[in-house]
Each structure stands twice: as C-alpha cells, then as structure tokens.
Design a protein around this nucleic acid. Structure first.
Lengths: 106, 106
DNA sequence: CTTAACTATGGCGATATGGCCATCTGGAAA
DNA sequence: TTTCCAGATGGCCATATCGCCATAGTTAAG
C-alpha cells in the first residue's frame, strides 16, 4: 500500500504539471486538435516564451509530443488518460458545491 | 470546449492539492483507514505542524473531511475519485518508461 | 548568404510554496 | 482550576514557480 518516497515524488511531479490553469487550457485545446506554438500563444494571451515553457513542462512530463513542420513546432496529446484526471477534478468540484449548499440549507 | 479562466483556475487549485508527495502519501494511507494527526505525523516523519498544514489543504480542497473525537482530530477520505486520478498518473509514468526504452533500443 | 518567421532558452524580479519553531486553542483528566 | 495532550496557526527563512524581456537557435524564402 504505502509506496516509497521516490514513487510519491514521481507522482507528485506529474500532478504538478497539471497544477496550472494555462497548462490545463493547453491540454484542453490540444484534445480538440494539434496546434503550433503561435496558435497557442494567441489562445492563451501570454508571452510566447511563457507558452513555450508551459509546453516544455507538459512535454517533459509525458503529456505531449512535438513534431517539427518546417519552422513550426506542432504539439499533440501523447496520453489518453486526461478524461480520468478531469473526471476526478470535476467530482471534487461538484462535491464542494454540494457541501456549500448543505451549509446554506441548514 | 474552451472554459473560462476562472474554471481553469478552480481545476488547477484541485490539482495543486495533489502536487506534493506528502499529500499523496496521506491520501494513500487514508484510503486504507481513517487516521488522526498524530498517527499521520509519525507515518510521514515530518513536523506535526507540517502535517497539519498538508491536511488543511486537502480538507479545504474537498478531498478530506475531519471529525473530532475528544482531543483527537480524525481525518477520512471524502472523495471516491482518487482511483481515476492515480490511473491517469500511472498511465503517464508507464508511457514515460516506454519512451525511455524506445530511445535505448534504437 | 541574408533576411524573416517561428520557437526555445537564459536571466531577473515578484510571488507562492514548504519546512520548522514557537505559540495559541480546545478538550480531558487530576 | 490547573495541568496535559492533540492540533492548529503565525512567523520566518529557503526554495520553487511564474511572468516578461532579451536573445539565441532553426528553418524557409529571397
């Protein structure tokens, strides 16, 4: 049951990659279709270097893969597990709302 | 498809709660049975105040609930979605290993 | 080769996170 | 009440994260 410290650290690193709104937005967008850095920069509305760094994190973690098309770098999803992740997140959010409602209704 | 900035922020906050090895350990242990702060402090091997703060984060986020038993505070899981979350994490880890292997085998 | 377009990277300041120590709070027992 | 015990909270320092700017690297076009 209890894993080693290194195992928890490895899992935490994956989770950290998902712990930023911009990176969640990028994953969401890439679930729809592959995109190049320029398109995502416009979508996010931040500096190009900022977006590039977020993409590097998602790529290093294993969520994304990159393919060069001329001067453009096209990113795409490399994992099919995001549904599971977001399912958990949504579940927690719904439960939170429910807890708030119960406090009001009493 | 594309959600609002606030929605991504809310999801990122949930993910941040999962982005620390100690908190993953705590969730793992609590999946087995309910525990009080003292037990978890011993399990983690950090300062009591450190553990207490981690628990506060997990509680605020909605992953845990707390029940007072005399002077002891007993924490328990409040969500049933961690399987999904860990499923995603494990999937990414496996894929990472596979990618490393492919690099070696070429 | 030179230029222009597209990305990646280094650096820096601002902010957030994590750890421990010290302290405060609340409940149980003497 | 006084005393302990279990936890929670505030403070402080070290480190990590994040954003932008500036710049370097890469590829296609002229």
């Amino acid at each position: 049951m209890t894993k080693t410290k290194a195992q928890y650290e490895a899992r935490a690193q994956i989770a950290r990659a998902l712990a930023h709104p911009t990176r969640l937005l990028l994953l969401d967008a890439l679930a729809d279709k592959d995109l190049c850095v320029g398109e995502m920069t416009e979508l996010v509305g931040a500096d190009q270097s900022t977006v590039s760094k977020h993409l590097a994190i998602l790529k290093e973690t294993g969520f994304l893969q990159m393919e060069k098309h001329g001067a453009m770098n096209v990113y795409s999803l490399r994992c099919q597990c995001l549904e599971q992740f977001f399912g958990c997140i949504e579940s927690v959010l719904r439960q939170k709302v429910q807890a708030q409602q119960e406090l009001v209704e009493i």
